[in-house]
Design a protein around this nucleic acid. Structure first.
Lengths: 342, 342
DNA sequence: TGTTGTTATGTAAGCGCTTACATGAGGGTG
DNA sequence: CACCCTCATGTAAGCGCTTACATAACAACA
């Protein structure tokens, strides 16, 4: 066969299955069989093949295999970015589960993309299924577009119709958290964060509202700021200028809470004496800061793992689930809420 | 041609280039051409094809393309894990640069793998080049194995022969840091961390030693502990039991420094009054903690970006570079070293 | 009007695998 | 000893793309 030059030619990049077959004195089918391990092959043949593989340092070409078996054995994951522990942990959980399922993972970070749609389309090109973290950057259109091609699950995002969603619980735990703070006798609590950012924050604010209503208090309008440290600092400054009047701050995440708390303290304010502060996420810093930040811990890794798992099920032909999966969260009480230090 | 059934058959998963060609009334070559955009195609034809693509929701199959063009347009990245900001930032830098170069990235986290060698081999199967973060988990064998197949660059790892390495500067900055602390009049400084963990820590200890020697002091043996918070806490406890006698702790990373500093403080010790503490990495917490942690900031994102970049160059046929690239780091002086707070 | 050069498109040969099917070599059996 | 099974292996047909090469259509020129 002139088709595949079996010998010489010293192409540096990679022996093929033909080379292995030639070397072992068998057909490529046999090589494939010993490598797949599914079919029975005579032990002596197997050894010959394995030896040839070893000597040639043969690595099968993923693309060729994918083409032949008609799937990629890979899952895609679309995240906004990776600063802070949230996304990183999600990714770890996802990766771990995907690894168990023998799936590669290919990652797209949306913040670094100028042409997101293109990136996502290109992703769809090389994976069997995709998990996307709900974020404003990912429009519903993009999700629906993907959805038509590949199984998709969105994590902590807006539930588009027909797209499976998984998320951590927000409303109840926010209600518990806010209730806890209110229980310390605080009367002018503020919710810091923008409910329009996405369902997560929206539900947290809803919990905040619920906690107020169930004790006959009227909840303040949310203070709409973004979720970064810089925004926190800016808000704290406004607070110091008495633009707000509050004795408790329920922040939408830890970064916000931390930066607010620290700039307040640096200005001589007593936290939680004058003002209580709580966060959301339980990042590492929250344990180290004094007073310790009262916050809510989400099962982030589990979320990632669940996503990987569902993706795999979907690929294996399971029907998508109509309702959203929601994982329980855990209130972590330290002392920034007004509780005495441990 | 019976080969490709152009019609009916309602296979849910994916139109092929044949379907598009059929629909647009052109050959598959033409479809390919408009999609690649390289060759000239008559405008009207282009429109027809694009319309067909649109209507069918056609997404080309990555594997088929890869097979035909004989490369994957993907880079692999092997990291130990993602807790803490270090690896995450590295990943971000890598991803961002890879995105610019239109490369997908497929990620392997070694800590979640039971069979690392298999995972890495499987990775080699589907990417054009691989960056691995030097870590004890990755044996030199694995690297050399890969090296034979694909271009490899190792980040902050042991320089195996023939493998390109990039890293952040360690020795000089460690010397500067230790010198700074010694300059505060400390006389019994300890290096906390195990130099045998890898070249990073080894060089940091070497800097510690150098700083001592250049002022005629004799450097203490390193305190060999691992790099986690738990290890830090344990060490701090031994310190509190007076198993060591020290007035300064040069820790191998921030996690260690932070956990040590906090448990010391919780036990009533004055940092930096009685004992100075420094870290390495400048994690977020180091800014928030009081006293602020003096530490060294590494250009982690740049490291990642550089890795992606070199990978791309190697794939495009550039010769590997013999010498290691080393990126400069930056001493971040706060007050845990004994300097007055800002 | 015949010749030649362009340009747009089609034809077909792979890319390196997997796998259904065909084949051949033993090993039991009657 | 002929026959049928079984088991191991080979043969060859794809998988869905890209791209070198061939071809057809047409314009421009003499």
């Amino acid at each position: 066969m002139a088709k595949h030059q079996t010998s010489s030619e010293a192409k540096p990049a990679g022996a093929t299955i033909y080379d292995v077959a030639g070397r072992a004195g068998v057909s490529i089918a046999t090589v494939s069989r010993v490598l797949q391990g599914a079919t029975v092959v005579a032990e002596t043949t197997r050894q010959k093949v394995l030896a040839a593989v070893e000597e040639l340092g043969y690595v099968p070409l993923g693309a060729a295999r994918s083409l032949a078996v008609r799937h990629h054995e890979a899952h895609g994951l679309v995240l906004p970015e990776l600063s802070g522990p949230y996304y990183a942990e999600l990714l770890m959980g996802f990766e771990a589960r995907a690894a168990e399922l023998a799936q590669s993972i290919v990652l797209v970070l949306t913040d670094s993309r100028t042409d997101l749609a293109a990136a996502v389309r290109q992703l769809a090109t090389r994976v069997d299924a995709i998990a996307v973290l709900g974020s404003p950057a990912i429009s519903g259109d993009v999700v629906r577009l993907l959805r038509a091609k590949k199984p998709v699950v969105v994590i902590a995002g807006e539930p588009h119709d027909g797209v499976e969603t998984i998320a951590a619980e927000n409303l109840e735990s926010a209600r518990e958290l806010a209730g806890h703070v209110l229980g310390h006798g605080r009367e002018r609590a503020l919710f810091v964060g923008d409910p329009d950012t996405g369902p997560d924050i929206r539900h947290r604010y809803a919990g905040f509202v619920a906690a107020h209503e169930e004790r006959g208090l009227v909840p303040a309008e949310p203070v709409r700021v973004a979720l970064s440290e810089a925004d926190g600092t800016a808000f704290a400054q406004r607070l110091l200028r008495n633009e707000y009047h509050a004795d408790a701050l329920i922040c939408a995440n830890d970064e916000l809470a931390l930066s607010i708390m620290t700039t307040l303290q640096d200005a001589g304010r007593d936290v939680p004496g004058e003002i209580a502060v709580t966060g959301w996420d339980d990042v590492m810093t929250s344990r180290y800061v004094r007073p310790g930040l009262t916050t809510v811990r989400q099962p982030v890794q589990e979320l990632g793992a669940l996503a990987a798992n569902r993706l795999h099920e979907l690929v294996s032909g399971e029907p998508p689930q109509a309702q959203a999966r929601v994982l329980p969260t855990q209130l972590v009480v330290r002392s920034s809420c007004g509780c005495p230090p441990a």
